[in-house]
Every structure is written in structure tokens, then in C-alpha cells.
């Protein structure tokens, strides 16, 4: 399984039956492909859809039916459409259970910077700040390092923060961290990664709090 698919599959395990989930662009959109059969979630798209279904084939695309990434989607039975004010009322008002987002960087306290691209004019924010503010649980699903191989998890980010609120969980191709009391806690290693590799590719301090069956891996 490739890195991005692994991240999506691992993130999918965090979702519970009945969750209302908002998915960011990129890896997060893959997550629903890996849901177990007995878990049904309701995908919320901030441009005004609850109940987003799989993407249609090109021949079935409807110009009036897109997700927040402006890609054609379908809707499931029981879906609904609403305006942007209602949609962000759902988000800010705490009615969306989980949001899964990508990020540029994450600091040592679990705060993310995912809107202002370095070196470019800061002219787009979209719904990122509202989602960080209001979603019940925030999961970051991201590659562990950026395109230049540099850590995305750093002590302090020089990029503009999206919110003061820390995220709840970080899932990468190497590891899973949770954030509690303003500290990163490594809770799981991916099957082929090692603690040494995670330390080497992480630019921040973290505690170790193994969950599940990590002891049996001999780490």
C-alpha cells in the first residue's frame, strides 16, 4: 500500500458509525474509500451538502454538484443541500463531528498552519479556520515530511497558524500522534516504520504513549 493510501486507511479507523465528517482536499478525500462495511458516515461539504457520495464517472458529472474542492461528486439517499451560512453555522456551531484536514506544518503544541502558503500572497483561507474552530474532533492526515523531505512537524512554525486550537490526532505514513495538554504524544508506529525514523523525520519533541499492541512490536 502506498503512503497516501496507508494514511487514508489508518485515518478511516478513527471514524465511528453515524459520524458527520468534513473532508479537506487531498489525502482526506481518500479516507471514505477505506471505511469498514459496518461504519457509515455522513460527509459534509462546506459549500452546502450533507451526504456526499462517491465521485461520478466523467460522463455522469453534474456541473451543479461539486464538493469544496470544486470536484464533481454524487449524493447519497438522505442527502440535503443548504446555503453557505447554514453550512458554516453547522461547522461553527459544533454540529460536525470530525474534520480531516491536510496541513503544511504542525507545531510542537499541535497547532497547524494549512492556509497561507510560504512565499505566496496570503489571499485564500476558505473554510479552514471555521473547521478548526468548530469541528468536534480535528484529525490531520498528512505525509510526515514535505516535498523537500523536511519535517512537517516542527518545534515552531514560521507559517501563519490556522487557529490557536490544537488538533486532536495526526496520522502520517510513519506514525500516529495524539495531542493532549499542549503536547504531542506518539501513540503508534506504522507497520514498516521505526522509532528512530520517526525521531529523525520529526522536528519537534514528543512523548511516547504506546497504544494498542505496540509493545509486541518490540519497540
Amino acid at each position: 500500500m502506498k503512503a497516501k493510501e496507508y494514511i487514508a486507511a489508518r485515518t478511516a479507523k478513527e471514524l465511528q458509525d453515524g459520524d458527520v465528517v468534513n473532508l479537506g482536499i487531498g489525502i482526506p478525500t481518500l479516507v471514505v474509500d477505506y471505511l469498514p462495511r459496518d461504519v457509515r458516515v455522513f460527509v459534509h461539504s462546506e459549500n452546502g451538502i450533507l451526504g456526499v457520495g462517491p465521485s461520478p464517472g466523467p460522463e455522469h458529472a453534474d456541473a451543479d454538484l461539486v464538493n469544496a474542492g470544486k470536484l464533481p461528486v454524487t449524493v447519497e439517499e438522505g442527502s440535503s443541500f443548504f446555503d453557505s451560512a447554514a453550512s458554516f453555522g453547522m461547522i461553527r456551531g459544533g454540529h460536525v463531528d470530525v474534520t480531516i484536514l491536510g496541513t503544511l506544518e504542525i507545531n510542537q503544541r499541535g497547532q497547524i498552519a494549512n492556509w497561507a502558503v510560504p512565499g505566496k500572497a496570503v489571499l485564500g483561507v476558505g473554510g479552514a479556520m471555521d473547521l478548526l474552530e468548530g469541528a468536534g474532533k480535528v484529525i490531520v492526515a498528512t505525509m510526515h515530511t514535505n516535498k523537500d523531505g523536511q519535517p512537517k512537524i516542527v518545534k515552531e512554525t514560521s507559517l501563519e497558524l490556522t487557529s490557536l486550537r490544537p488538533v486532536d490526532l495526526i496520522v502520517t505514513e510513519l506514525a500516529v500522534f495524539c495531542v493532549r495538554d499542549g503536547r504531542l504524544r506518539l501513540i503508534e508506529l506504522a507497520p514498516h516504520s521505526t522509532l528512530e525514523e520517526v525521531r529523525q523525520k520529526t522536528g519537534a519533541e514528543f512523548d511516547i504513549e504506546w497504544r494498542e499492541n505496540m509493545e509486541t512490536k518490540g519497540v
Binding site: S84, A85, F88, R92, G124, V125, G127, A128, M129
Partner: peptide, 18 residues
């Protein structure tokens, strides 16, 4: 915007809608 021809006021999407 960078040439100074267009002023931009950026709002979070939910703040804009509201």
C-alpha cells in the same frame, strides 16, 4: 493585488457567509 491594482479583504468563508 501584487501590482496594487486590486484591494483584497480576506474573510474566513463562514465569516463571509454570516
Amino acid at each position: 493585488n501584487q501590482k496594487g491594482e486590486l484591494e483584497i479583504q480576506l474573510l474566513p468563508q463562514g465569516t463571509l457567509a454570516e
